Amino acid sequence: RGLALSHPDHVAVVHGGVVRATQTPQGQPALVIGGGSGHYPAFAGWVGPGMAHGAPCGNVFASPSASQVYSVARNAENGGGVVLGFGNYAGDVLHFGAAAEKLRAEGIDVRIIRVSDDIVSNTPENHRDRRGIAGDLPVFKIAGAAIEAGADLDTAERIAWKANDATRSFGVAFDGCTLPGASEPLFHVEDGQMGVGLGIHGEPGVRDEAIGTADEIASLLVQGVLAEQPERTDGGYQGRAAVIVNGLGTVKYEELFVVYAKAAELLETAGITPVRPEVGEFITSLDMAGLSLSLVFLDDELEQHWLAPVDTPAFHRGAMPALDRPRRETFWEAGADETPQATEESRRVAEQVSDALALFERVCAREEAELGRIDAIAGDGDHGQGMAYGSKGAAA
């Protein structure tokens, strides 16, 4: 609500998140991006001309529900179909997928893009099965620019996947972040060590090693990403790359600039030209101490859309052409349709459902700590909290 009040020309609040304050042009595909909160400016900060049309916002580090995704998509869609974009995490895959099924059942064409840029989370052969981290920024920026330039739904989907397949990210963490209300960080990194291969929800790295200087960390990240540099071809990639150095919350701009200075030097040595580099906080993780490097190996088409203007609360570039897009006065809301009268049979079923949900709520509350402990072994440790919140809400 505060975001919308401070950026009234960009966004408006609807159930589940935010949409553009102006109507999506008739027939234009709607790019709806989202995930858990705690990552600002991702994802609500990227809603505006040249990028997203809407963003469902889940709880901190938790996927938005299917109803949130559905509501935002219904408010953003205007006859051109929907592209749903999110990082490749289990909860997002589940809930965005369920929303897509409901939208499709109502005759709306929906395409799904799962960003998967994190090189440590799977093999190069399984790039689309990796998790999404800071690569969300260039993938959604490029897809949004393509839509602004007139791409239809098929073209927008193709370009979004092309951007994802050209994007590689690698990061390190110096300490974990703490969920609001929790007494301990989700993970710790020992003094003098760094976690290599961080996740953006507090997932620990794949290994710990001695912390290096800024130059040494830059070298580690550049070498890791360039290990998957594609071959240079006529009409394709020719050594030009979008470059993003992303801070996760407590590593601030001065330090990020020091890392980028070395990274730029190493890229030049490797014969790579940075194209409109971005250094700053783009996908944060509350107060997490960490940073990542992302490269998008550009061809002419991707570069055109990477450089295109964009105007959102948290990401600006160039000047958008003057467009006469009216402000929205009405929004779709759930429950507006008439509900039929209940029958005796439906009341009996409702009582059974209510009893089952109440039992589920009690079990999840009792086992919250254990579910979180199990999840923390390989994930971010918030599964118990998510199940407790979700079951309580369902029972209510």
Score class of each variant (00 low, 15 high):
Ala145His: 13
Ala145Glu: 10
Ala145Ser: 15
Ala146Cys: 12
Ala146Val: 06
Ile147Ser: 07
Ile147Asn: 12
Ile147Gly: 06
Glu148Arg: 13
Glu148Met: 10
Glu148His: 14
Ala151Leu: 04
Ala151Trp: 04
Asp152Thr: 10
Asp152Tyr: 08
Asp152Trp: 02
Leu153Thr: 01
Asp154Leu: 06
Thr155Val: 13
Ala156Val: 01
Ala156Glu: 09
Glu157Gly: 11
Glu157Asp: 15
Glu157Met: 10
Arg158Thr: 11
Ile159Cys: 03
Ala160Ser: 05
Trp161Gly: 04
Trp161Ser: 10
Trp161Ala: 13
Lys162Ile: 01
Lys162His: 13
Lys162Asn: 02
Ala163Gln: 04
Asn164Val: 11
Asn164Asp: 15
Asp165Arg: 11
Ala166Asp: 08
Thr167Lys: 09
Thr167Asn: 09
Thr167Gln: 10
Thr167Met: 08
Thr167Ile: 01
Arg168His: 13
Ser169His: 05
Ser169Phe: 11
Ser169Gln: 05
Phe170Glu: 10
Phe170Leu: 13
Gly171Ile: 07
Val172Met: 08
Phe174Tyr: 14
Asp175His: 12
Gly176Thr: 02
Gly176Ser: 02
Cys177Val: 05
Thr178Ala: 01
Leu179Gln: 01
Gly181Ser: 03
Ala182Thr: 04
Ala182Leu: 09
Pro185His: 04
Leu186Arg: 15
Phe187Thr: 00
Phe187Trp: 09
Phe187Gly: 02
His188Glu: 05
His188Ala: 06
Val189Arg: 09
Asp191Cys: 07
Asp191Val: 08
Asp191Phe: 05
Gly192Gln: 05
Gly192Asn: 06
Gly192Thr: 11
Gly192Cys: 07
Gln193Ile: 04
Gln193Val: 02
Gly195Pro: 01
Gly195Glu: 13
Val196Glu: 01
Val196Phe: 10
Val196Ile: 14
Gly197Ile: 00
Gly197Cys: 01
Leu198Ile: 03
Leu198Ala: 06
Gly199Ile: 09
Ile200Glu: 05
Ile200Cys: 07
His201Val: 03
His201Asn: 03
His201Glu: 06
Gly202Ser: 08
Gly202Glu: 02
Glu203Val: 04
Glu203Arg: 09
Pro204Tyr: 06
Pro204Ser: 12
Gly205Ser: 05
Gly205Tyr: 01
Gly205His: 04
Arg207Cys: 06
Glu209Leu: 06
Glu209Phe: 05
Ala210Pro: 11
Ala210Val: 14
